[in-house]
């Protein structure tokens, strides 16, 4: 389970006269249970990515707290990193390495190795349907192919908690469907999944829980049905627009 409580984060950018303070996150709270997919839904710049970066220990919160499987992200970041699989906004594959070498590198960084690691890579490639690509260098891979490799890399250590930052961005229909099947499979195996998105149909089809974030704050947390009931709307999109931007948009 991932529990986030009142996280805030402020950045300063620029120097001298160009200096600007950005309140990226002003108070985000939510709980993501095991065996479920929780969506962070919000417009661009709402603070989703920063929230996920705080949960994944890359960014230190100014205040508030977050726990992954009961472990605090600030005081025990190594343990949290070990328990998490993260598909970040930047897929960041090494183009001169093959898909297999990319995944193997992360496996080794996480203390895996030998035949067990190779077996794990093979089964992930099978599950994510990219076995023919496994020994090819990732240079020139399509967006969908890169995503599959990056996802396999994030899952190489079979983490209990998985964070995905806009995973279907730039995917074609077939790849997006394959990814959704994968997410459902992960959920059914009891994992705790959190993913950020702004694609309504996807959220509606996949997620048990929805957290709406706008202007750096949690505006709503609950099931899709609760969300619709609260706003009196029949579609998730209408309900989202009302909660995120207020009425009349």
């Amino acid at each position: 389970m991932i529990r986030v409580d009142g996280l805030t984060k402020t950045f300063t950018t620029g120097r001298g006269g160009q200096r600007a303070v950005i309140h990226a996150v002003r108070g985000v709270s939510f709980t993501a249970p095991d065996g479920a997919i929780t969506a962070l839904l919000g417009p661009n710049g709402a603070g989703k990515t920063t929230t996920l970066r705080m949960v994944s220990t890359l960014v230190k919160p100014d205040s508030g707290s977050a726990q992954v499987g009961g472990v605090d992200v600030v005081t025990n970041e190594r343990q949290v990193r070990a328990d998490l699989g993260v598909l970040s906004d930047a897929r960041g594959l090494y183009t001169r390495l093959s898909a297999r070498e990319n995944i193997r590198y992360y496996g080794e960084l996480r203390g895996l190795g030998g035949p067990a690691l190779e077996e794990r890579i093979a089964s992930l490639a099978h599950l994510l349907e990219f076995e023919p690509l496994l020994n090819r260098r990732t240079e020139g891979f399509s967006t969908g192919e890169k995503l599959k490799v990056a996802l396999a890399r994030a899952l190489v250590h079979d983490p209990k908690h998985v964070l995905l930052d806009e995973p279907t961005n730039g995917l074609d229909v077939v790849s997006a469907r394959a990814l959704r099947r994968m997410l459902v499979r992960l959920k059914e195996s009891g994992k705790c999944l959190v993913f950020s998105s702004h694609v309504m149909q996807e959220v509606e089809a996949l997620c048990e829980r929805v957290v709406i974030i706008a202007k750096g704050q949690t505006m709503h947390e609950g099931t899709v049905e609760e969300l619709k009931a609260r706003t009196g709307k029949t579609s998730l999109e209408d309900a989202f627009v009302e909660l995120a931007f207020g009425q009349g948009v």
Binding site: S56, T57, L58, R78, Q79, R81, A82, L84, V86, S88, D89, A90, R91, G92, L93, Y94, T95, Y106, L109, R110, A150, R153, A154
Partner: peptide
């Protein structure tokens, strides 16, 4: 190439 961020998410 955007690989620093995922790299740092490993427990290294």
């Amino acid at each position: 190439r955007g690989s620093l961020e995922p790299l740092l998410m490993n427990p290294v």
